[in-house]
Amino acid sequence: MSIFIDNDTRLVVQGITGRDGSFHARQMMEYGTNVVAGVTPGKGGQTFEGPDGKQVPIFNAMDEAVSATQANTSVIYVPPAFAAGAVMEAADSGVDFVVAITEGIPVLDMSRAHAYARDKGVRVLGPNCPGLITPGQAKVGILPGQIVTPGPVGLVSRSGTLTYEAVYHLTNAGIGQTTCVGIGGDPLIGTKFVDCLEAFRDDPETKAIVMIGEIGGSDEQDAADYVKEHIDVPVVGFIAGQTAPPGRTMGHAGAIVSGAGGTAAEKMAYFESCGIAVAKRPVEIAQLVQEALQG
C-alpha cells in the first residue's frame, strides 16, 4: 500500500519538452512510473521519446491529454510565470492530483490557484517541492529513486535534500518506506503535514511515520496535535534550523501572526509533548524508527 501514488497512477507531465521536464520525465519512466502523456502548448501531435524507445504523446492542452489517455495525476515543470496557470488548467482537466515542482512562483498567483483547485476538489502537492515516491511503484517529481526501498515507514518532509538524507539512513538500516512525500517549502502549499498524516493513518501498511519540519509557521504544531489525537503508530520527528538566526523581519505583522512557536526549540518541545520521538541529529531519525518498530 501507499498514499497518493501507486501502480495505478497515470501521469501527465506538464512542460515535458523543457529542460527539467524532459530530464525528469525520463527519470520517472526509468523508475517505472506510467507516464501516459505530456503537455506543451504548440507541440501537440509530436511525441516524446522516453527510455528504451518508449513514445509518449504530446498534447497542446491538459483537457486533450486527459481525455485521450485517462491520466489521473499531473506533474508541473512549467516556468514560474506560467506555473500557477498550469495548476488551474490541471484542476479543470479531470486529474485529481497535481504535483507542482516549479520553484519561484509568485505567492499571490498561488493564493488564487490553491483556492481554485480546492473548489474543484483537486489535491495539489507543492509548489516548490521535490514531489513524492512510492518505492517499487511510482515516483512523481525529482526524488532520487535509487535511495528508497519498499517497507513500513511513511515519510513526510518540508525539505528536499534533508529528506534524501533521512531516507538514505532508513534504507541503509534496512528500513523501507511506504511513500515519501516532500510537501515543499513555499509559504502557501497545497498538501500539508496533516493531510499526509491522515492519508498514512488510512494506509494499513504504514507502521511508523517520520515527519521532518523546519522553523517558521505553525504547520508542525498542527501536525503534532493531529498525531496526538488520531495516529496510533509511532511517529519520529526532526526540526531543522535550531541555529538559524532570527531574521531581520520588517514590521510587526509577522510576529503578531506567528507569535511564539516558530523556532526549532519550540517546535521540538511541542512534538515531545504530543508523544513524538524527536531526533536531535539526522542520523538519529533511522535509529529512533528502528527502536519504535522493534518496541
Binding site: 534533508l162 521532518i212 531543522a240 535550531q242 541555529t243 538559524a244 539526522p282
Partner: peptide, 15 residues
C-alpha cells in the same frame, strides 16, 4: 545543497 540540509548542517556544527 538544499536549504533544509543546510540548516541541519549548521545545527550539527553547533551540536
Amino acid at each position: 545543497n538544499g536549504a533544509g540540509l543546510a540548516m541541519a548542517t549548521m545545527d550539527l556544527v553547533k551540536y
